[in-house]
Write a protein that binds this DNA or RNA. Structure first.
Lengths: 236, 236
DNA sequence: GCCGTCAAGTTGACGATGTCAATCTGAGGT
DNA sequence: ACCTCAGATTGACATCGTCAACTTGACGGC
């Protein structure tokens, strides 16, 4: 691993970039924290001198961001792969996929989403994630299961899912329920129905106890009609 | 500021602790980022030599955590101050207060909630925040506007609010709506109704288009009865 | 009034890190 | 055989967290 790397041929200097990224990625996932991502450690692992990193990355932050971004297009695939069918169900699948993705790449997620971006402007990570969410929500607005501005609705859903995985990632010592998958399921459905119900609320509502009674009645009315018995469930 | 501090009298060594905390706090809020919190900078500002910090804090992380914790009991006051009256309304006020608190102390919030805690175990910050949330939710379960396990429900609400402020803090360049207060309002209500509705859902639901129709009907049924016209609104 | 003690605080140093200017090296065209 | 310049290295700098060893001076006792 620490054998000195053979110099790249002319015109193939960019090869080093890839090797540095790989070395950095390995360091990150092996150590499980971005503190292990030292320029010196990365360079050593790539079999190269430390300042060589600067041939391909402006500074350390650029390297870290590039490393974390490497995994991010997987998120796009997860989203598009989960579209299709009932939009409300698809949205739920997308949200769950998003959460699973975050938990599968906790370090990358934390670096990209839980830190003030070094570069100014909207970080591409947040941009793409949000765009996908908005698209899935817009489809639900189309079928009228949601009502209102897709971006506004998506912000609520995104907040819920992002909040949940952020807490899971940043507070691992918290007494979480054993079944993370079930927790995420719970959060996603709760947020999904919140979005569905919220836009239909009248400005004025009854006080709590009366509201509770009407909600009870509502639950019964939501059940599937008997002529669609095959469907397991239709909630996100 | 850089005048050498007069030595404390015997038995009053702990005075320095307070001065160091104050200096560190000022640095943090002035610079707006925890990178400015250097042991050397703190010591210089406190008029003291750098290693003196170690007389009162085990290491840098301990200092940073102590600084951020200093502001955290304010959160408890905000919560208890917003209790009383209709529990559903109170919960909404608490959630909004939580969000406002986070946005008022973005650096502290990020350090305490968006970072892997250096010390093992549950960080007191997350613990207290969650306990308060659970208590407010439990009151709503009491009036039956929520149904189910308060902790489970609170996790959903906490996720939504925490997710929203996390995004606001960590992604300031994102094209947020101008009115942050309104955004938070939106998120809180959306999450609140999600929690209220979720636990009442039957296992099987109709497909999107039918669900949409029933939701429309539901909105109308939720409106306040005419004999309670004075109440502005009863949503969190 | 002097003194010894011990809490309170400082000195100086170490290793590690990000970064940069200056330098070297050697593959490939002529 | 030689030149060129992309590809990479050397050596250094400032800054950081941290520590062992040292100094200072307030205070109780004589």
């Amino acid at each position: 691993m620490s054998t000195r790397r053979v110099r790249a041929r002319r015109g193939e200097g960019a090869l080093l970039r890839e090797e540095i990224l790989r070395a950095a990625e390995d360091l990150l996932t092996e150590a499980g924290t971005e503190d292990a991502l030292t320029l010196r450690a990365v360079a050593r692992r790539a079999g190269v001198s430390t300042p060589s990193v600067y041939l391909h990355f402006a500074d350390k932050d650029a390297l870290v961001e590039a490393v974390c971004m490497r995994v991010w297009d997987e998120l796009g695939r997860l989203f598009t792969g989960n579209l299709g069918g009932d939009p409300f169900l698809a949205l739920g699948r997308c949200a769950r996929a998003y959460a699973r993705f975050a938990l599968d790449h906790p370090v990358q997620y934390r670096v990209l989403m839980l830190r003030p971006s070094a570069a100014p402007g909207v970080p591409p990570a947040a941009e793409t994630a949000f765009r996908h969410m908005v698209a899935a929500v817009a489809a639900c607005v189309e079928t009228r299961v949601f009502e209102g501005d897709p971006e506004e609705l998506a912000l609520g859903l995104w907040s819920a899912v992002h909040g949940c995985v952020s807490l899971l990632i940043a507070q691992p010592a918290f007494p979480w329920p054993r079944d993370r998958e079930a927790l995420i399921d719970h959060i996603v459905r709760q947020a999904g129905f919140g979005a569905a119900v919220y836009s239909r609320l009248p400005g004025t509502l009854p006080p709590s106890k009366e509201l509770a009674a009407r909600l009870d009645e509502f639950g019964a009315r939501l059940a599937a009609v008997p002529d669609e018995p095959s469907r397991r469930q239709s909630s996100p």
